[in-house]
């Protein structure tokens, strides 16, 4: 069964025995996986399962207690993320990565206009032409279905769904290859959620993004992700294709999670 290598055989990100302890308490333990270009991986589990700790370690927002996270840089080299210089790491975070927070206020500058929120990353990498920055911002606003006339309004004047879409535009403007998402639809009305999910699904497939999304909502995982990791007590207890995990869950806890979904 010598399987031929698939295209993009090189992983984009690799976590090896990633562990984060909070004193005696376990944040996440011994997490090992690879993420390939274009893959959407959902990390699911209930509150306290360690999924957000894991996301924070993967995105270098939190230093792990043990283990390694490696990332394939744009030049093709695989680098240990916690051995990057701070300048390299921050550049990575604002160019090749995105991070979509659950609360848009954590990911937006609430006191500056929508246009400046989208344009900030461009200015951070040296774009110095106002007209070009504004043009790109307008383009992105329309891609996330925000009316162009709102470009000079601050996000304070936006609804929850619009803020979230603005946050997505702000992250995607530098064409990142990897986007981390922490409960991106949490706290939104169901109808607003559906629109956001649909938008995300389209953007992810059009742009060929790799995504690691943390959610407790299995419907979100089903709609967006290719693969799933189920976490409990800081450990990954089941992984696999999203539809396999949801339709034929193996671990007792996964069966419980799946059976708890309300059927409408």
């Amino acid at each position: 069964m010598s399987a031929k290598p698939l295209p993009d055989e090189e992983p984009l990100l690799r976590a090896s025995a990633l562990t984060r302890l909070y004193g005696e308490r376990i944040g996440c333990r011994d997490v090992t996986f690879e993420l390939y270009p274009g893959e959407v991986l959902a990390i699911v589990g209930e509150s306290g399962s360690g999924k957000t700790t894991l996301l924070d370690c993967l995105s270098t927002r939190l230093a792990p207690t043990a283990g390694i996270v490696e990332y394939r840089m744009r030049d093709g080299t695989m680098r240990d993320l916690f051995r990057l210089t701070e300048a390299e790491r921050r550049l990575l975070m604002r160019t090749d990565w995105g991070f979509v927070h659950q609360h848009a206020a954590d990911g937006l500058r609430m006191s500056v206009s929508a246009g400046a929120n989208v344009g900030e990353r461009l200015m951070a990498v040296g774009e110095r032409h106002y007209g070009d920055i504004r043009g790109t911002a307008l383009d992105w606003l329309s891609r996330v279905e925000i009316d162009e006339s709102r470009i000079d309004d601050t996000p304070r004047a936006f609804s929850g769904g619009m803020r979230q879409r603005l946050q997505i535009a702000r992250n995607l403007v530098t064409n990142p290859r990897l986007v981390f998402m922490d409960e991106p639809t949490g706290g939104l009305d169901v109808s607003v959620q559906a629109r956001l999910l649909d938008l995300l699904r389209g953007l992810v497939s059009d742009l060929g993004l790799s995504v690691i999304i943390v959610t407790h909502d299995l419907a979100v995982a089903r709609l967006l992700s290719h693969r799933m990791m189920v976490m409990r007590h800081g450990k990954v207890i089941e992984t696999g294709l999203t539809d396999r995990v949801l339709d034929d869950p193996q671990a007792p806890y996964t069966q419980l999670l799946v059976s708890s979904i309300l059927q409408v």
């Binding site: 069964m1 399987a3 031929k4 396999r244």
Partner: peptide
Amino acid sequence: GNYACEKGRILITADGGETVDIAAAQPR
């Protein structure tokens, strides 16, 4: 691949002639 295959082998031959055991295939 929607249900896990516990036992045995499910061999599929792709257009290139390559044969893969689905029962053991990685999600990717």
